[in-house]
Design a protein around this nucleic acid. Structure first.
Length: 294
DNA sequence: GGGCAGGTTGACA
DNA sequence: TGTCAACCTGCC
């Protein structure tokens, strides 16, 4: 994981990160498979996204990962490592999952080695998942990108960052509806007003237990169990949370033969069976089922 | 044109 | 506790 300058020139130099553990497939699924909506791959196969309000580009390169940040002062190798969960705790999580006695899980993990849960900012993650009900990934991306372009800070390279909830609180529900949010606009507006008037409330969730944080965040309009679990998993590092969407429900019902179980029972099963890193198991299932690798 | 989709909510049995 | 329709929009 030693950064090295790979290239010198006018634009920021490429740096190299080794021992990252990704494959092309697991990197693509990690960045653009439904947990983040800020990554795009260009025609040359280079990924462009935003981390900590800095535009970052990266691609796999031989055994390493080449990456560079538009603002090389405000972004370090450690920031990238943190975001992509490239540290020993990932391997520990993988080792802890019950794949030794669970062939369904083993199959998914073997198909997608290196698949990660990203460490994304909580405020932005809540925003994107409030947009998600009954929407496809491209639709969520489109609306989120427009909101950033209109109300967010310019980050250079034609990219814009998340505006923040305080800024969104100043925008009318009508304006959001113009951006194809539909009925979700009402929830975004209500959440924005609440969060603006309760500074520190959202970050405070980080210090709570999974169960406490889940109960709290489900009090927000438009946040039910599924979105709560997504936000806590992808935005608050609560790796025990296990979002059950239609894909995961299909896996539990048919692969784990829980045909007669209700949602609450399925969730209880998953949290017990997959334990502390249930969220990572969920991500393997999600990608494998979507890509028809199961 | 009607049905449906990666979800939540409120009404009702 | 469980089922069901409505909610916006886009796609088949």
């Amino acid at each position: 994981m030693v950064p090295q300058a790979v290239e010198r020139g006018g634009s920021p130099p490429w740096n190299s990160l080794v021992d990252h553990g990704f494959t092309e497939l697991s990197l693509a699924e990690t960045l653009a498979g439904g947990q983040s909506f800020v990554w795009e791959q260009d025609a040359e196969g280079i990924w462009h996204g935003v981390i900590k309000q800095v535009v970052v580009s990266l691609r796999l390169d031989g055994n390493g990962m080449a990456w560079r940040a538009a603002d090389s002062d405000g972004f370090t190798t450690q920031d990238l490592i943190d975001y992509l969960w490239i540290d020993h705790t990932y391997q520990e999580a993988v080792n802890t999952l019950p794949w030794r006695s669970d062939s369904t899980l083993a199959k998914c993990m073997n198909a997608l080695p290196g698949l990660r849960i990203l460490r994304q900012p909580l405020d932005e993650t809540l925003f994107y998942f409030l947009l998600s009900p009954v929407k496809s990934i491209p639709q969520i991306k489109e609306t989120g990108t427009k909101v950033a372009e209109i109300y967010g800070p310019s980050l250079g390279n034609g990219r814009y960052g998340f505006p923040g909830w305080s800024r969104l609180a100043e925008v009318s529900e009508e304006k959001f509806r113009d951006l194809k949010m539909g009925y979700r606009a009402k929830n975004i507006s209500a959440c924005a007003r609440f969060l603006k008037s309760h500074p520190g409330w959202l970050d405070g969730l980080q210090t709570l237990s999974y169960q406490e944080a889940r109960a709290e965040i489900m009090g927000l309009p438009g946040v039910g169990g599924k979105i709560a679990d997504c936000v806590l998993l992808f935005g608050a590092g609560k790796l025990e949370s296990f979002p059950i969407d239609t894909w995961i429900d299909k896996v539990l019902t048919h692969r784990y033969h829980l045909e007669d179980w209700n949602q609450k029972q399925k969730l209880a099963f998953a949290r017990i069976h997959f334990a502390d890193f249930a969220g990572l198991a969920q991500q393997f299932f999600f990608s494998a089922e979507r890509l028809k690798l199961l």
